[in-house]
């Protein structure tokens, strides 16, 4: 594989006596879709929050997009996109207002924004709904839009924390089409999920249990290694 875009060595995160991340070491390569799996409370969200700069590690060496997490947090922020478990757009703003807000926050010029906005609305079929408040849109549309807004500033990496919670399989599939598209354009995808069928879509997956990474490989290799017919079985064997 090519360049490392995220490199984590011996990451430890403690909350008091509780160890949420116990000595994690892994790399993510440029342009790949990296699945970050684990049961609830395994420590996925903690890791993702540390990588995004929302939380600071207790110890360990971490580089995101080539920058050190401790020293260059501000530079990292310009190079990443983030979509949280909770819906991350403003429900009382319209589609275009949301796009304008985030374009503004990331310092995208008005001209570039207009071009990309038109393109995006067309791609998502939201042209007619562009002046509607987000709150009134179906969940599937909202999530697709939230993802598109998260990568609007062309980040090198986008972190998706359970992006598809609560949507139907068809919408999920379409959402993953967007993820593939972004990955093809060179954006690295770091995604946590509960859905094992989604794990199959990833280039590589890591499976966490009780704060430790128990397995990290391509879905195909993992299935071979655990002698399982699908990722579901792999997951159950690891996480029990």
């Amino acid at each position: 594989m090519t360049d490392k875009i995220i490199s984590v060595k011996n990451l430890v995160k403690k909350f008091g006596t509780f160890t949420a991340n116990d000595n994690l070491t892994f790399d993510v390569y440029k342009g790949e879709i990296f699945g970050f799996l684990g049961a609830n409370g395994a420590g996925k969200t903690t890791t993702i929050r540390i990588l995004c700069g929302l939380s600071s590690p207790t110890s360990g060496e971490l580089k995101v997009a080539g920058f050190d997490v401790y020293r260059d947090a501000e530079k990292i922020k310009k190079n990443i996109g983030y979509m949280s478990q909770k819906f991350s757009l403003y429900e009382d703003l319209t589609v275009t207002e949301n796009i304008q807000l985030f374009a503004g926050i990331y310092g995208i010029s008005r001209k570039v924004r207009k071009e990309k906005e038109a393109e995006l609305l067309k791609k998502l079929n939201l042209e007619e709904a562009k002046n509607k408040l987000i709150g009134g849109l179906p969940l599937g549309w909202k999530q697709k839009l939230a993802f598109s807004v998260a990568i609007f500033h062309d980040p090198k990496i986008v972190f998706l924390d359970e992006p598809t919670g609560g949507v139907d399989p068809v919408t999920r599939r379409r959402f993953w089409d967007l993820i593939y598209e972004a990955a093809n354009n060179g954006t690295t995808i770091f995604v946590t999920t509960h859905y094992m069928d989604e794990a199959e879509y990833c280039n590589r997956v890591s499976i966490m249990d009780a704060g430790k990474i128990e397995a990290l490989d391509t879905p195909a290799n993992l299935k071979k290694m655990y002698n399982a017919k699908d990722m579901d079985e792999v997951f159950v064997k690891i996480a029990r």
Binding site: K77, K78, Y82, M83, K86, Y90, E91, G107
Partner: peptide, 13 residues
């Protein structure tokens, strides 16, 4: 509460 604060904090703001 809505979770939008996280998004703001991840941004360069």
């Amino acid at each position: 509460e809505l979770g939008t604060m996280e998004v703001l904090l991840v941004s360069p703001l």
